[in-house]
Write a protein that binds this DNA or RNA. Structure first.
Length: 384
RNA sequence: GGAGGGGUGGCCGAGCGGUCAAUGGCAGCAGACUGUAAAUCUGCCCUCUUCGGAGUUCGAAGGUUCGAAUCCUUCCCCCUCCA
């Protein structure tokens, strides 16, 4: 398969700086893809998504098949036109919903029978149908239909699940219609078991894909197991093809995974957190609901270029969040996505400069999940 | 002046003899969030606590009862209607 051109521009340790070319544009890697499940990055216009620096967004087969329907989107000229995102689009195959909607589906060799979470209607998703839907959507990058293995799983369960995903990968590969500028990614499964990951990678390589995803991580196994699993998987992936770590993650996860050879990421965290008052900043994460921000006239992140940081105070953002105003979600999402994109740009520059280790050290040192408030002595909620 | 209805924890509002420190909702204070069933979810929210409990609460005072937010008496306040 050579539908997608991938150039490796630089390396730093295991980290790679690359460029992926698709029918709708190129993607500088390492790249972060904002999640736009239902043909929208929630709380954002596509223009604003682009302004954060994002070059590609992710949409979802399962959600769009239910509403508005793949055939309808095709009839309307495809997903790019439909959602006004002219750039590259990657579509998830519905494999994640096999896990997340476990209570609403039945799984067998043929595929997965979902009961719609919207109206209870029944839908069969097979590898063939998933690939067809993604073609109807006009996705630049199509994902193989898989089962995202739940965690924890015994090695036997993980192997059964992985084998099923590999059989489905073969069917996905056969169903995919090759076109220039369009590609199909296989998904490595095997939970946290290194031998299974190796076998899964080999099975996919034998089929040959445009890119290789690492799936089934960040599902509860913890950072250490996630990273060791990436380390165990990466050597089995071809160097000349992009690697995509699905569903990851926190800023520190992105840095650690880039250092381990991952090129692409997606995660709902920056967008969902933006809607639930959590802001990622260069100085740690902040909960904008917290009373300590109520009279803070300073910016969310003084070093950020985004509108939320340039034009609004923490006090105002706190007010918007407390008042449940839509603008709060919009501004925080905008900020989080900007922060993620700026972090990726910084990683790309660092790889080119051979200085990735500095960023890795910074994130290991500051553990970005921990609040690192410079104004820790700020006005407390003093009661009088 | 007459006739009714009502006063419950910051607010709204259930409860109407024991299982009530008192359902809910809101507000408040925190936490979670990783290929989105998410503008969601969880915890705390009278005081003290060694988190096992302990102590004071349901307009005020008195009473009935083994036991009262719930019944009785008086008082205070609010609302509606009629004059």
């Amino acid at each position: 398969m050579t539908g997608l051109r991938f150039e490796l521009l630089a390396r730093d340790g295991r980290a790679r700086r690359g460029r992926l070319s698709t029918a709708h544009g190129t993607i500088e890697t390492p790249a972060f893809m904002p999640v736009g499940t239902a043909a929208t990055v929630k709380a954002m216009t596509p223009e604003d998504v682009r302004a954060t620096g994002a070059e590609i967004v992710l949409c979802n087969t399962y959600h769009l098949m239910l509403r508005p329907g793949a055939e309808r989107i095709a009839k309307l000229g495809g997903l790019h036109k439909f959602m006004n995102w002219p750039g590259p689009i990657l579509t998830d195959s519905g494999g994640y919903q096999v896990m997340s909607l476990a209570e609403l589906r039945k799984i067998d060799e043929e595929g997965v029978r979902f009961q719609s979470h919207l109206d209870g209607s029944k839908h069969l998703l097979t590898p063939e149908r998933s690939i067809e839907i993604q073609r109807l959507l006009d996705a630049d990058i199509t994902m193989a239909f898989d089962e995202c293995t739940p965690y924890p799983a015994t090695e036997a369960q993980a192997e059964d699940s992985m084998r099923l995903s590999m059989r489905w990968a073969e069917r996905s590969r056969r169903a995919f219609v090759e076109r220039p500028g369009y590609g199909l990614f296989g998904i490595v499964q095997g939970s946290v078991f290194a031998p299974l990951r190796a076998q899964s990678a080999k099975a996919l390589l034998d089929l040959g894909f445009d890119g290789y995803a690492i799936g089934g991580l960040a599902v509860g196994e913890g950072t250490a197991l996630m990273l060791s699993t990436i380390e165990a998987t990466e050597p089995h992936l071809p160097a000349d093809r992009p690697r995509y770590l699905m569903g990851v993650g926190k800023p520190s996860d992105l840095v650690a995974a880039v250092a381990r050879g991952v090129d692409m990421f997606d995660c709902v965290l920056p967008t969902r957190s933006g809607r639930t008052a959590q802001a990622f900043t260069r100085h740690g994460t902040l909960n904008l609901r917290n009373a300590r921000h109520a009279e803070d006239a300073g910016p969310l992140d003084p070093d950020c270029r985004c509108p939320a940081c340039r034009n609004y105070s923490r006090a105002y953002l706190q007010h918007l969040v407390k008042a449940n105003e839509i603008l709060g979600a919009m501004l925080l999402t905008r900020h989080n996505l900007t922060y993620y994109q700026d972090l990726m740009a910084e990683l790309r520059a660092a790889i080119e400069a051979g200085r990735l280790a500095e960023i890795v050290a910074r994130f290991e040192r500051t553990a970005p999940e921990e609040p690192q408030e410079p104004d820790a002595e700020a006005p407390q909620t003093a009661r009088r």
